[in-house]
């Protein structure tokens, strides 16, 4: 099951292509309007539900009738905290939308809760959102540059690390975070460990994303040097092997407003270039979709086509 997906395209996508029709469907989502409307403003719309996607007839109906150039989709699969609509990703503050996948090792850390009036909730997730907002120079700014969002993201990770360190937490934290202001998307695949793989994160880019075979088998195609569509997901959303690239552990990716995907290594004491990381930790936590699993998908996908 897909835990999260990000879509950014030069033209808006019908939500159903992303969220309900592919085999991997997800339920909680936030999206920006495809046409700016002064009255509606520039903040995204959020849809959350505690029931499974395949049970939600209203979601299916809505997804057929809404188009958006930038969508965050999220499935809440953890059991930590209470299961209520207030705790469902994605979170919104003004123009900003945030979600994450993974888990913060708690120990006895007291995480900052200053922005509780912004984000209602009582799990670690909201606290990360809070600290992210705290670290932005101006969370209410009208625009953010890719650089400001990148630095805020790195500062947030660094501050969570130092909080954990100060509290003597030794267990690594999985920090796959995503934030967008509607123009730029910044996402991380990160773990506070130099020995383990982070929760998985993949991306795909191309010019069109369409149903290649019946039954929700989607394919990305490439008819230009440039990218019109960039997707980031916790696991591949289509069956085409070549469509998806794994983002390296401890890397920050940026989808720029001009549709360039940048992959920037996060350099800190947990970066271990060249080292082989173990997959057990993330797998144990249920956050790894390794290549092996994908390969089996891939061959079945091909046999379907031939």
């Amino acid at each position: 099951m897909c835990r999260f997906v990000i879509y950014k395209g030069t033209s808006p996508v019908q939500l159903s292509h992303l969220l309900t029709r592919p085999c991997h469907s997800i339920i909680n989502q936030g999206w920006y309007d495809s046409v700016y409307d002064e009255e509606l403003g520039s903040q995204p719309c959020i849809f959350t539900s505690v029931t499974p996607a395949w049970n939600n007839i209203n979601l299916t109906r809505l997804a057929e009738k809404i188009k958006s150039p930038l969508v965050f989709g999220h499935v809440r699969a953890t059991t930590a905290g209470s299961l209520s609509l207030d705790n469902c990703h994605p979170f919104v503050h003004g123009k900003l939308m945030w979600m994450h996948n993974g888990g913060i090792a708690h120990g006895n850390i007291e995480l900052p809760d200053v922005a509780f009036n912004v984000v209602q909730g009582n799990t670690g997730q909201t606290s990360q959102h809070t600290s992210f907002l705290l670290i932005l120079p101006d969370p209410n700014a009208r625009t953010f540059t890719p650089d400001i969002l990148r630095r805020a993201m790195l500062d947030t990770i660094a501050s969570l690390n130092s909080l954990a360190e100060a509290a003597g937490v030794t267990e690594p934290s999985l920090m796959n975070f995503c934030v967008t202001d509607g123009d730029t998307v910044v996402a991380t695949r990160y773990i506070s460990s130099d020995k383990d793989e982070a929760a998985s994160l993949w991306f795909s880019s191309g010019t069109t994303f369409s149903e290649d075979a019946e039954g929700g088998h989607y394919k990305m195609s490439k008819a230009d040097k440039r990218e019109n569509i960039i997707m980031v997901a916790s696991e591949p959303l289509t069956f085409e092997r070549a469509d998806w690239m794994e983002i390296k552990t401890n890397t920050l990716v940026i989808i720029t407003p001009r549709f360039n995907l940048l992959q920037i290594p996060i350099v800190d004491k947990y970066s271990a270039p060249g080292a082989v990381r173990g997959t057990e930790f993330a797998q144990e936590k249920g956050f790894l979709n390794p290549r092996k699993a994908l390969s089996s998908f891939s061959s079945s996908g091909q046999s379907n086509r031939h």
Partner: peptide
């Protein structure tokens, strides 16, 4: 050369 750039090498 890993990370020769941050973006795709066009």
């Amino acid at each position: 050369i890993d990370s020769a750039h941050y973006g795709y090498i066009y």
